[in-house]
């Protein structure tokens, strides 16, 4: 009775309370997206008049050999970061769940620390720590007796990509660990007891009970990581010279969009690139969702 009263009496107040969110979201979230889509069929240099050009921008993308390269770079950097990231997160969660670790919270908090620091600072930080024969990292490597030191990290394309992947792994494995552990805490402890009674060891319990039950968490991590990873900008832009050098090795798709928009003033083309990237990200997320969800039905 009283619940019904609340509902009928205060019907429109609900709209009042959600209105600021919805309005600001439409203006600053949705509208830029729609605007970008519209601009992808136009030509605009940033200040003059806007011209409709139909599919011309998209035709130009098909002929552009640099764009697929940036997608390849981004995917490669993301995969080399994400796979170890998830691996470490699972391993650490397993350790923290099944062993009584003294100072567990301290370890976890420190692993998460790199994620808090401004990515632009981190890019520059690794650049000056690693760049050059006399750099601090090269001195550290020689001190540790690494034979191949000094290493010219930013001269080789694959080495530079590896450095970016490493930085991203370093920034994100702690975050992923926190999220996986949050998923694990929602599992009923009874299930572990039952598994132990059935004679499962820790490893078996983790693989047979924990992993299947945290599949939704892993799907969440994978999809948000695809979405974020395909847009990486801050670290690759700041770890070398903003151009993705050496030889465009770390020119990511987002950096390419930025270059076309804000360096070459071809905003229409940059918008078209964004639209294509959006489709790629949506497709990858869907693919990740399907493959990971699909296993459940079998």
């Amino acid at each position: 009775m009283s619940k019904k009263g609340l509902a009928s009496k205060t019907n429109n107040w609900g709209y009042f309370f959600i209105a600021p969110f919805i309005i600001v979201f439409i203006v600053f979230g949705l509208y830029p997206m729609v605007y970008t889509f519209q601009l992808s069929f136009q030509k605009w240099n940033g200040f003059g008049a806007v011209q409709n050009v139909g599919f011309e921008n998209f035709k130009r993308i098909i002929a552009d050999s640099t764009f697929p390269l940036t997608v390849k770079n981004t995917l490669k950097i993301w995969l080399c970061d994400f796979i170890p990231q998830l691996g470490f997160a699972l391993l650490l969660s397993m350790i923290f769940t099944f062993y009584r670790i003294k100072g567990m919270k301290v370890f976890r908090a420190v692993y998460y620390l790199p994620n808090l620091i401004t990515a632009a600072s981190i890019g520059l930080l690794f650049n000056i720590l690693m760049n050059g024969d006399k750099s601090t990292v090269n001195q550290l490597l020689s001190m540790l007796g690494v034979k191949s030191a000094p290493i010219a990290f930013f001269k080789s394309q694959s080495m530079t990509q590896a450095v970016v992947s490493y930085i991203l792994w370093w920034m994100w494995f702690g975050y992923t660990t926190v999220i996986v552990m949050a998923g694990i805490t929602s599992i009923e402890p009874d299930l572990y007891e039952a598994a132990q009674i059935d004679g499962c060891n820790r490893w078996q319990t983790f693989v047979r009970i924990t992993l299947p039950l945290i599949r939704p968490t892993i799907i969440y991590i994978t999809i948000t990581s695809v979405i974020g990873g395909m847009q990486i900008f801050d670290v690759p832009a700041n770890v070398t010279n903003m151009q993705g050098d050496p030889q465009k090795a770390i020119l990511t798709s987002s950096m390419y969009v930025y270059q076309h928009g804000f360096k070459n003033n071809s905003f229409g083309y940059a918008s078209a690139l964004s639209v294509v990237l959006f489709v790629i990200i949506a497709a990858l997320s869907y693919l990740a969702f399907k493959t990971m969800k699909g296993k459940e039905d079998r």
């Binding site: 019907n11 609900g14 605007y35 970008t36 930025y258």
Partner: peptide
């Protein structure tokens, strides 16, 4: 509060978390 479209609007909230915002920078600039 219970109101019409509550579920729909809440879906908007959830969906907005997943939007790749870096991809709309050109529109954001304009």
């Amino acid at each position: 509060y219970r109101f019409k479209g509550r579920g729909f609007f809440f879906c908007i909230v959830l969906a907005s978390m997943m939007l790749p915002s870096q991809l709309s920078i050109i529109g954001f600039y304009k």
